[in-house]
């Protein structure tokens, strides 16, 4: 018997900053930057990876309609865990009422840590070790002031209850593609990450996204035509659309899962927030192929089929579209203060 998504939950913070606003500070061309990204989400001062994951997890449990005490595992992927030593998963487990009988760990694999968490919980469920597990990704991404990443590094979370009973989407198969590729990294104690500039595209993103996606299509004996929706990791709007073109996927099959132009790159949550938006709209029987990408580098692919249970659960929590529309703009000075970029403050 297959396992799948019993409940899903998204969280997108309210605050936004426009790319034109960031561009003005660094004497860049606001119009040029706005073509690449219009605006990105910003976490408030009292929001972090843990708070956003808890909000998303509560929505996922609400949609699943299960007793949280039945959750036997909590795995959370992030590259912005609030503590270096002290688990985020235990905070989430406690806040949703799943402690103490649960497996738990915090994962890190750049932007694919969230999908790695789903793979682990899916395996536990398939092995019969647990009835339900909670997994997903949450990030308040960091970009060095003035760096290209500052325009895109955003915040968001998506969490999923995985189980076998009453699933809204079955997880039909999953496959990973990993090589040791230094396209993006952040050393211990360093505040901001570094990246290999143009090197991040070809040997990083495209090699792994295509490797995993072609791999899962081959393993399942399916073709692009068999899927209604494709969701790819989205560090910008161009990469996922270029990957789709290389794979012969029509653009319209990618757009529902492409949230980057409205919220930016939410790192561990990026592909799975796209998946949440697809689940908000897909009809029963729809087939989804999702491939994440994490620098370092690797991709996780999933094939899923939406079931007729989706109609009962979808409206039990806020849809992604509502969270995208619920927003308040801040200027760069406020952004710098909220992101604690101003030094010397007591």
């Amino acid at each position: 018997m297959k396992a799948g998504i019993v409940g899903y939950g998204a969280y997108i913070p309210r605050l936004r900053i426009k790319s034109s606003n960031i561009a003005k500070v660094w004497s860049a061309d606001p119009e040029l930057e706005a073509k690449m990204i219009n605006e990105k989400t910003v976490p408030n001062m009292d929001e972090d990876c843990a708070t956003m994951a808890v909000e998303a997890a509560r929505s996922a449990i609400l949609r699943a309609g299960i007793d949280p005490m039945k959750i036997g595992a909590v795995y959370i992927g992030s590259e912005s865990h609030p503590y270096v030593v002290k688990s985020t998963s235990s905070i989430i487990g406690e806040a949703v009422g799943a402690t103490p009988n649960m497996m738990a760990a915090d994962l890190e694999f750049a932007c694919k840590a969230g999908t790695s968490a789903i793979q682990i919980v899916n395996s536990h469920v398939l092995a019969g070790k647990i009835e339900y597990g909670l997994a997903g990704g949450s990030d308040t991404a960091q970009g060095r002031p003035g760096d290209a990443l500052e325009y895109t590094a955003a915040a968001g979370a998506a969490m999923f209850v995985v189980g076998k009973k009453d699933v809204v989407a079955t997880i039909d198969s999953t496959l990973s593609y990993v090589t040791d590729t230094p396209d993006f990294w952040r050393r211990e104690g360093e505040e901001f990450p570094r990246h290999g500039g143009r090197f991040t595209g070809e040997p990083g993103y495209f090699k792994h996204i295509l490797g995993a996606t072609e791999g899962i299509l081959s393993e399942t004996g399916t073709t692009v035509k068999d899927y209604d929706y494709f969701v790819f990791h989205q560090p910008n709007a161009k990469f996922p659309l270029s990957a789709a073109k290389m794979l012969g996927i029509p653009k319209e099959k990618v757009l529902t899962g492409l949230l980057f132009p409205k919220i930016g790159n939410t790192y561990s949550a990026a592909s799975i927030l796209g998946l949440c938006n697809v689940l908000d709209t897909a009809t029963p029987g729809s087939r989804i192929l999702m491939t994440s990408f994490g620098s370092g580098a690797g991709s996780d692919s999933f094939t899923m089929t939406v079931t007729d249970k989706i109609g009962d659960r979808r409206d039990m929590a806020a849809p992604v579209s509502q969270m995208i529309e619920r927003k308040e703009y801040i200027d760069y000075a406020t952004y710098a203060r909220y992101k604690e970029k101003i030094k010397g403050v007591l």
Binding site: D46, E47, A50, V54, R58, I91
Partner: peptide, 19 residues
Amino acid sequence: TFRKIREEGKSGLILYGFK
């Protein structure tokens, strides 16, 4: 909603709770 209530400095505990 679940939020950070307060932090005990840069090296201390992060206290979470409802707002």
